[in-house]
């Protein structure tokens, strides 16, 4: 763990360390794919912060104290307080849990749904057209509108936000997987396995699935960051997570009334949201370069 925070130059200072034949694997990774280390490192810091929120000097993020409203950042309230006197530092830290959970859970859900439908559509000819038409249909409804409609259908809760954004996001994954499957199917060894009489599920499991994983993981990082942004937009139009479970989006939309005179109410959650999305995107770019060596070459 500790090595990951070492700057890559360390290996270039041999006089301080005994010469090594093989570089430390973390250092090697950092040299080859700095994006993964930077993005992953930043994300790790945020995740640790979110998980350890309760030990980082926070108070109950939902405890309202109407007498201490709208305080500017100070020694007592590091990020100030909001219009109900809630401590923004605590809300931002606990908000990290919610926003990250939404992002990760949507990425996982959308990936599973997308893999399942995409693999079936790509592998079973008869189901290809119907599945893809349904995906077309879902994709043609703008994600935010779909999520707003789903939020109207279901009570405002974190689970429902996750479900709503997942349904909006997974068709893209499904299309990607289907495309990958179709191209992998053409490969001689897959063709060979089918001709040799291997059962289709086995072909998918052994040959197709492993080959789709790289692009799928990359895509799922983008879904993760898109989900966090979509959640913020949903909060803005009043269809986000419930107020008792504050996400960064909720905190921001609650603070927007006063932002011209109390910019701290939007500033802190916005910076954290942007940094997190940034970290996930950088990590995604790094992973893409790692999985697709051609893109990593200098042009």
């Amino acid at each position: 763990m500790a090595a990951s925070s070492l700057p890559p130059q360390v290996s270039a200072a041999p006089d301080l360390f005994p010469p090594v034949k093989r570089r430390h694997p973390w250092v090697a990774l950092a040299r080859r794919h700095p994006s993964i280390v930077i993005g992953g490192g930043l994300l790790l810091v945020i995740v640790v912060m979110a998980v350890a929120a309760q030990w980082l000097g926070t108070v109950d993020p939902n405890a309202i104290a109407p007498a201490k409203r709208n305080r500017a950042p100070s020694a007592e309230f590091w990020f100030g307080t909001d219009a109900l006197g809630r401590d923004l530092y605590s809300r931002v830290l606990y908000g990290a849990q919610v926003s990250l959970m939404v992002g990760v859970a949507v990425a996982v859900c959308a990936t599973i749904l997308g893999l399942a439908t995409g693999l079936v559509a790509g592998a079973v000819r008869a189901l290809d057209a119907p599945i893809m038409r349904i995906m077309d249909g879902l994709m043609s409804i703008p994600p935010i509108l779909l999520a707003v409609a789903l939020m109207a259908l279901m009570r405002g809760s974190v689970l429902n936000v996750i479900l709503a954004i997942s349904i909006a996001e997974f068709p893209r994954m499904s299309r990607l997987v289907r495309g990958l499957v179709l191209s992998i199917r053409e490969q001689p060894y897959v063709d060979g396995a089918i001709v040799a009489g291997t059962a289709l599920p086995m072909v998918i499991w052994r040959h197709i699935l492993p080959n789709t994983l790289g692009p799928v993981i990359v895509q799922s990082t983008y879904i993760c960051s898109a989900a966090m942004i979509t959640e913020a937009a949903l909060s803005f139009i009043g269809a986000g997570t419930p107020p008792s479970v504050p996400s960064w989006g909720t905190v921001m939309s609650e603070g927007r009334a006063l932002w011209q005179i109390k910019p701290h109410m939007i500033f802190f959650p916005a910076v954290f949201l942007s940094l997190t999305v940034l970290a996930v995107n950088i990590l995604g770019d790094g992973l893409r370069d790692a999985f697709d060596p051609r893109a990593g070459k200098r042009g």
């Binding site: 939020m151 109207a152 009570r155 405002g156 809760s157 009043g238 269809a239 419930p242 107020p243 008792s244």
Partner: peptide, 8 residues
């Protein structure tokens, strides 16, 4: 406390 929109 159950969060919902006004229509609900």
């Amino acid at each position: 406390v159950q969060a919902m929109d006004w229509a609900t």
